[in-house]
Amino acid sequence: MNGRSSREGMSVIVKTVTRWVEGFILLYGIYIVLYGHLTPGGGFAGGVIIACAFILLTLAEGQRVASKTLNPAVAAELDSVGALIFLGVAVAGLVVAQVFFKNIIATPEAAQFHLFSAGVILPCNIGIGIKVGVSLFLVFAMLSALHVTVRQDGKRDLVRRGKDES
C-alpha cells in the first residue's frame, strides 16, 4: 500500500472504502467471466466489471497510483493478447478440425454444468474478458490523460496532461 497516502485523488474516506471493495469488484468480474457459460454474464459483462475496478482506483487514488497498479503500456499489450486468445481459439478449430471456430474441446457427460465444460466457450470468454477489461480501462485512461486547450486563433488542440500545460 505504498504511495497511497499521497494528496492526489479524493478524500481519505473514499480511498479507504475503495481499498476495501476494489478487490471484491475485481474478483466478482473474474467470476462473471469464468462462469459466463453457466450463469448470466460472460466475457463482455465481466470485462466491464474488471475495468470498473481499475477506473474506481483511478478516480479515488489518482492516476499515478492507478498506472502503478496497471501500467497503460502493459494494458495495451494485454489488449492485443485478449484478442489473440479469441482468434487463436478460432484458428485452433481450423488447424485441428479444418473448420474455422469448430468446437475442439469435447465436454464429457459428467462435466456438464461444471466450470470446465461447454468446450471453447470458456477460453473465448477469458479472451473477451481480458480484452474488454483493459480496453475500457485504456479508453478511460486516454480520456483522462488529454485535455483541450484553446489556442489564440480560436482553434482547439488536444494536449497530454502535465506535458505542455503551461
Partner: peptide
C-alpha cells in the same frame, strides 16, 4: 474463406505487440 478475415485481424493485433 475465413482466412480473408482471420489473417488481417490477427496481424492487426500482432503488429502493435512486436
Amino acid at each position: 474463406i475465413p482466412l480473408f478475415v482471420a489473417i488481417p485481424l490477427g496481424m492487426a493485433f500482432i503488429i502493435p505487440m512486436v
